[in-house]
């Protein structure tokens, strides 16, 4: 599948912003700190909004996006839109509390955190329910989306805490570390699933004989078309294994080192923390790029792909 930059930006930036909202809510409950919240919530707001705006760049007729909330009964994209907009309401209440009243409003913070996770879950479900892309059609897809958002948001929260100079509670560091381990493990399983053979073959796509007996003789047209550009993306697959290792390294190594140092009590590390968070974000972009670039669509079977 073609890795559209606008969609990668959206899912990574908004996802991380939504994850940050969760950790900020947890902090507000555990050890209320206005300085952290006044830095963290605007950052989350900017990331979420920039991502959502970026997603509209993907639309060919963005003016008609006004209809996009109407089909929540069947469409995960519609549900995602509703969840995203609904999450702004408690977020605005949180802002009112922080900047006008000068206090934490816990209920709003918790509601914003729940809305955030629902939005990210809906994003994952958009891909998970596409049966034609077997790599995506696994429950691990939405788990990866949720864990990536939580881990990324956690990295940002910890980095902000080291910058502001508030202590990171040990349980929080441990839970972020657990989310990171979960992300790595789920992604590993996701990749194993990607390598497994698909039920759809050129034989089932055409109904002509057995897989070894049927092959494309001639495409319908001599040039590329929208289908082959959109769903026949191939560039990444040459370097897929290397890119996977790079993304795993960027995601896991700096953040793990940071979390270990925090757990061991070395907390005055604002610059390494910012660096680890930046590298995690870079790894998240690469992981999301691979999520699209490595996924194969069944339509490829009609254009000479050996497997879907």
């Amino acid at each position: 599948m073609k890795p559209a930059f606008s969609v990668i930006c959206f899912t990574v930036l908004s996802g991380t912003g939504y994850g940050l909202v969760v950790w900020l809510a947890l902090n507000a409950l555990l050890q209320p700190d206005l300085a952290l919240a006044r830095l963290g919530y605007p950052l989350a707001f900017v990331m979420i909004s920039a991502g959502l705006l970026s997603s509209t760049l993907h639309l060919k007729s963005p003016a008609r996006a006004r209809f996009a909330l109407s089909q929540w009964r069947t469409s995960w994209l519609s549900r995602e839109g509703i969840a995203a907009l609904a999450t702004y309401l408690p977020l605005l209440v949180v802002f009112w509390g922080l900047f006008i009243e000068g206090r934490h409003w816990h209920v709003a913070a918790v509601l914003a955190a729940v809305g955030s996770m629902l939005t990210v879950f809906c994003t994952g479900m958009i891909y998970q329910t596409i049966r034609a892309v077997r790599a995506w059609a696994t429950p691990m897809t939405s788990v990866v989306y949720l864990l990536a958002a939580l881990t990324g948001g956690g990295a940002f929260c910890v980095a902000l805490q080291t910058i502001v100079g508030t202590p990171v509670p040990m349980p929080v560091s441990l839970v972020i570390a657990l989310a990171l381990v979960g992300l790595m493990a789920t992604k590993h399983l996701w990749w194993r699933n990607l390598a497994a053979p698909s039920a759809s073959t050129v034989a089932t796509a055409t109904g002509l004989g057995q897989p070894g007996d049927v092959s494309l003789f001639e495409r319908p047209h001599v040039t590329e078309n929208w289908l082959t550009e959109e769903m026949g993306f191939r560039v990444a697959r040459n370097h897929a294994a290397r890119l996977r290792r790079i993304s795993q390294g960027l995601l896991a190594v700096p953040l793990a080192a940071l979390l270990v140092s925090l757990i061991l009590g070395v907390t005055d590390v604002p610059i390494p923390a910012a660096l680890a968070t930046g590298l995690f974000l870079l790894g998240a972009f690469l992981e999301r790029w691979l999520f699209f670039a490595e996924a194969r669509h069944t339509v490829g079977l009609y254009y000479g792909a050996n497997h879907a």
Binding site: L59, K60, P62, R131, W226, M231, Y302
Partner: peptide, 21 residues
């Protein structure tokens, strides 16, 4: 009503839908 998001074309296993640029 179509906003040109292309999700339906992803959902179709057959490649029966094409976005008009």
């Amino acid at each position: 009503r179509c906003m040109g998001c292309g999700l339906c074309a992803w959902a179709c296993p057959y490649g029966a839908r094409e976005m008009d640029p």
